[in-house]
Structure formats: structure tokens, C-alpha cells
Design a protein around this nucleic acid. Structure first.
Length: 497
RNA sequence: GGGCCAUUAGCUCAGUAGGCAGAGCACCUGACUUUUAAUCAGGGUGUCCCAGGUUCGAAUCCUGGAUGGCUCACCA
């Protein structure tokens, strides 16, 4: 914007502003016949290779490309650090080696410019691996100054809005996203090696199901149809199980039109995994295996710390019934609560706001959320959730008010949700109808009736275990990030002005 | 949505009691052929987030707004 204004006003004018000075340098370079946005450079090594393989490279000629991050001039010679994805390497350039004209061009370069250099590898007096430049080329002139070299970019707003700057100057940011990438790769490898088939299902749904959440709505012109961005991948993946796929997973973005917080971003990534002839016990083992294997692969250890507190991911993880945890934390034994009426009374006694039509299971779940959840440092499996809050999970054999469902908590965060899948189409229809009633009563998060999914179940879905993992939250834990925005490259932000 | 806090140079930050807008890095001019937060000499480059108000005078006090952070609510 600013540069645009200056370029419109004529970059030849003497301007004090750093940006316009750099615009002037571009013009000057072109007048000298030097292209400030050059062709690709024939790179032979990365910065890290020059440093790490110095013994083998000493005295050899290498070509490296990168962004100038520091600069130290000494009259007829100069030092700078070039940064590429792998790290940084120092370059040394002297006028008697590259010639007067070439050196003059170097002296006009700025921090932030991207250049390619070729030269001999040597070590300076102070012992730093360095490239003694014999030639270089400008690959991209930077028109804007970089954030400060020592403190980096601290402004959280700018770090999210201009993530490229964050990545450029804050090594921890790049590390976080490299870990994220490796962790997802490790998950994929773990699952495919175990015989799971990776699939892709629609992002645009005619019925937004598979979770209790408000969807984003969009519109298809040709079909003249409201479509919802998916809030879960669940119902399509189970259709694939009906179709005969036995082990499937999908890693994908889902969208929920709800609040934003340090643990919630409107678009986030889940992996959902479905396996036939499995139940939630199998999914517990899969969960602890998967997450611990991923942690080991990307961090090399299972004993990590999150925000200053130790967290040991070594399996097996403890398993606790939800009703038991509620009793531990609140002293209320819901097994002894006979009906909805009594449950509501207990809720009021504990200061919970209720509408008046809540079922016992809903209140039990609310107790868990309010009084237990954030205190579960974990890792821990919380199991046996009330049927009222688990419309897609199969009822427990020994208690039809509960389901064979669990959630995983790490550092007080819910990171996974899994159950033995409900495969009885009659029961499923009843659950949807109950949800539809809640929707009609104004609960926008309640499930929509999904006739097409019921139809699929009517063809018969084998006994299946299903698991969903919130990848962003797992990455938060693995990278010790306090906010979900720290692990999402471009988190949702309100536009400036 | 409520509460609290923040917003000053490209970046990181000071700014006293309401009295000329500051530092470091970056940048500009000059010196310097192995430096590394290079050094030395000189230079301040600004819509103090925005709009009003109070005042002789506002970065500072008041009101409203914008954006962000934390938190509560809601949720996942």
C-alpha cells in the first residue's frame, strides 16, 4: 500500500523512508542492467550442509541461495549471513576478489534481500564456517525492512497476520510448523503401515452432521442449494464402512461456526479413523499407540513438558469412567441420581444454570465439563459418556443410558473423541429425532436428521470402532504452544480496519 | 457478547506531575580487507491506533470507536 503510493509518486524522488530508498535501489539496479528479481540459482548445498559438512567441503566451491539476515561491512570487505530453510551460513566478500563494480552492488544490498552466492568454503579466524564469495546474483530485492534482528517479531497480531515474517525471523515458529508437518506425516505413515486406507470425503455437505456444532453455510449457484461446510468427517467415513472398506482414515479440515479462543479456531484439522470389527477398547489402544509413536518420532521422547508442567505420554494411559470422575471431583454420585428431575435439582444446588428440560445424562456431562475437564492433566481416557450427549455412539451393553465412548485429555485439553459406532439404524433414527427436537427448540448445535445416513445404516454397517483426533491440539502439546493459533499457519483473524 | 489490559519510528520498547517525541536495532552519510548483537564519527526518518471532548497546552485526562491479547460466557 505504502510502497504503491511511493512508486506512483515516482521512485526517483529523494525520499527518507526506508521503503522508498529500496524502491530507488531497484530502479538504479535496472539502470545498471542488473535484474533485481533474478532467475533461479543453481544451488549445490544448503546453508546447513556447508556448516555441517565443513570437513568435506573445506576448499571446495559451493553455491548457496538465501535471504540476507545480518550484514557487517569493513570497507573493502564484508560479512553477511544468508538464511535458507535449513539455517544460516556466513558469507565473506572482498573487493579484490569480486571486483570493484560487483562489490559496489553488494554494498547496496539490504538485509532482507535474497541472493545466490558461489564461492570457496573456509573457516574464519574466529572459527566460523564461511563462503568466500567469488560471484553472486540478486534473486529478489526486498522493498520492506525486516523486523529487528535481535528481538525478532513479537507483536502477536503481526505474527499471525504476516506469518511469513514470523517464519523468517523467529526460528521457533518455523520449528513448530516443521514439527506439525512431520507429526502429520508420522500419523499417515503409522496408519497406512497398519493397513488403513486414506480417503477424501466432501467438504461441502447438504446435511452438516457428525458433531454438535453450528456450521458455516454457503450457496451453490447452479444447484440453487444451501451447502454446509463440514463440521466432521464422520458420517461419510461410516458410509464407506457400509460400502465394505474395513480400515479408513481421513485427515482434513473441518469448520465450526463458533467461538474463537486459545483452544478453538473456526477451521481446524482432525484425523478420523474407522475400523471394522473393533470397539472403543481397540480405539483406546490405537489412540495411545498412535500419539505416543508420533511423539517419539518427531520429538524423540515421550516425556515432554507443556507450559512448564511435565507430561508423560508413555502408554498405557489410565482409563476412568466419567461418572466416577464426577464423583471424585464433586462428590456427587450420579449412579445414585434416580431421574432427570433429581439431576436438575443437583445442578441447581451446584450453581449451574439450566433450562429446565435437561436430561440426567446432559447434566452429568455438564458436571464433567464444568468441574473435571480442565483439571485432567492426563494423559487419560475418560469413558462411558451419557447417551444423550453421544448421538452416534453405541449403547453400553450393561447400561443403556451410557455409551461405549471415550475422550482423551492431555494437559486439560480434549484431544480425541471415540466410540463403538452405533450401527443400529432404528436406534440411530431415534437419536436423530431427539436431536431434531432440540434443534426445533432452538439449539443450533443439535444434529440435523440425516436420512441418507440412516439409509446407509439400513444396508448394514459391521461392528466398527471410530476415533477422531484434534490434530491442532495434539500439535500444541507436542510443540509446547499456548495457543491454537501458534500451530495454525494462518489463523482466522478479523481484517484490519 | 461481558470484564480487564494493550496499541508511541520499519522492529523491540521507554516516555516522569498535562509542558519542544525518546533509546537500541534497522536506515542514511563517511571511515574501516577475517567480522559476528562488528566498530568509529555524524544524521531522527513519527497520523503517539482513529474520532470527538476538557485544557493556554494532550502520547498523557474524559467519551465513543477500531484491532489485538487474556479471561468469563458459549462451545469443541
Amino acid at each position: 500500500m505504502r510502497g504503491f503510493i511511493y512508486s506512483m509518486s515516482g521512485s526517483g524522488d529523494r525520499q527518507s523512508d526506508q521503503i522508498s530508498i529500496r524502491y530507488g535501489k531497484v530502479k538504479q539496479l535496472r539502470e545498471q542492467g542488473i535484474e533485481p528479481y533474478g532467475e533461479k540459482y543453481a544451488v549445490t548445498h544448503s546453508s546447513a550442509e556447508v556448516v555441517g559438512e565443513f570437513a568435506a567441503l573445506e576448499g571446495k566451491i559451493v553455491s548457496v541461495a538465501g535471504r540476507i539476515m545480518t550484514r557487517r561491512g569493513h570497507g573493502k570487505a564484508g560479512f553477511a549471513h544468508l538464511q535458507d530453510e535449513a539455517g544460516r551460513v556466513q558469507i565473506y566478500i572482498r573487493v579484490d576478489r569480486v571486483g570493484k563494480d560487483c562489490y559496489a552492488v553488494y554494498q547496496d544490498l539490504d538485509i532482507g534481500d535474497i541472493i545466490g552466492v558461489t564461492g570457496e568454503v573456509f573457516k574464519t579466524r574466529t572459527g566460523e564456517e564461511t563462503i568466500n564469495v567469488s560471484s553472486f546474483r540478486i534473486l529478489a530485492k526486498a522493498l520492506r525492512p525486516l523486523p529487528e534482528k535481535w528481538h525478532g517479531l513479537k507483536d502477536i497480531d503481526l505474527r499471525y497476520r504476516q506469518r511469513y515474517l514470523d517464519l523468517m525471523v523467529n526460528p521457533a515458529a518455523l520449528r513448530t510448523f516443521m514439527i506439525r508437518s512431520k507429526a502429520i506425516q508420522a500419523m499417515r505413515e503409522f496408519l497406512t503401515a497398519d493397513g488403513f486406507l486414506e480417503v477424501e470425503t466432501p467438504v461441502m455437505h447438504t446435511v452438516a452432521g457428525g458433531a454438535t456444532a453450528r456450521p458455516f453455510i454457503t450457496f451453490h449457484n447452479t444447484l440453487s442449494l444451501d451447502l454446509y461446510l463440514r463440521i466432521a468427517t464422520e458420517l461419510h467415513l461410516k458410509r464407506l464402512i457400509v460400502g465394505g472398506m474395513e480400515k479408513v482414515f481421513e485427515i482434513g479440515r473441518i469448520f465450526r461456526n463458533e467461538g474463537i479462543s486459545t483452544n478453538h479456531n473456526p477451521e481446524f484439522t482432525t484425523v478420523e479413523i474407522y475400523q471394522t470389527n473393533a470397539d472403543y477398547e481397540d480405539m483406546m489402544m490405537l489412540t495411545e499407540n498412535l500419539i505416543s509413536k508420533v511423539a517419539e518420532k518427531v520429538l524423540g521422547t515421550l516425556e515432554i513438558s507443556y507450559q512448564g508442567q511435565d507430561l508423560d505420554l508413555s502408554p498405557p494411559w489410565p482409563r476412568k469412567a466419567l461418572v466416577q470422575l464426577v464423583e471424585e471431583f464433586t462428590g456427587v454420585d450420579f449412579a445414585g441420581v434416580p431421574d432427570d428431575e433429581t439431576a436438575r435439582k443437583v445442578a441447581l444446588e451446584r450453581g449451574l444454570e439450566i433450562e429446565g428440560d435437561e436430561k440426567k445424562g446432559e447434566i452429568l456431562f455438564t458436571f464433567f465439563e464444568k468441574f473435571c475437564e480442565e483439571k485432567l492433566w492426563g494423559p487419560v481416557f475418560v469413558k462411558d459418556y451419557p447417551v444423550e450427549v453421544s448421538p452416534l455412539a453405541k449403547r453400553s451393553l450393561d447400561d443403556p443410558a451410557l455409551t461405549d465412548r471415550f475422550e482423551v485429555f492431555l494437559a486439560g485439553k480434549e484431544v480425541a473423541n471415540a466410540f463403538t459406532e452405533l450401527n443400529d439404524p432404528l436406534d440411530q433414527r431415534g437419536r436423530f429425532e431427539e436431536q431434531a427436537q432440540k434443534r426445533a427448540a432452538g439449539n443450533e448445535e443439535a444434529h440435523m436428521m440425516d436420512e441418507d445416513f440412516i439409509t446407509a445404516l439400513e444396508y448394514g454397517m459391521p461392528p466398527t470402532g471410530g476415533l477422531g483426533i484434534g490434530i491442532d491440539r495434539v500439535i500444541m502439546i507436542l510443540t509446547d504452544s499456548p495457543s491454537i493459533r501458534d500451530v495454525i499457519l494462518f489463523p482466522t483473524m478479523r481484517p484490519k480496519e
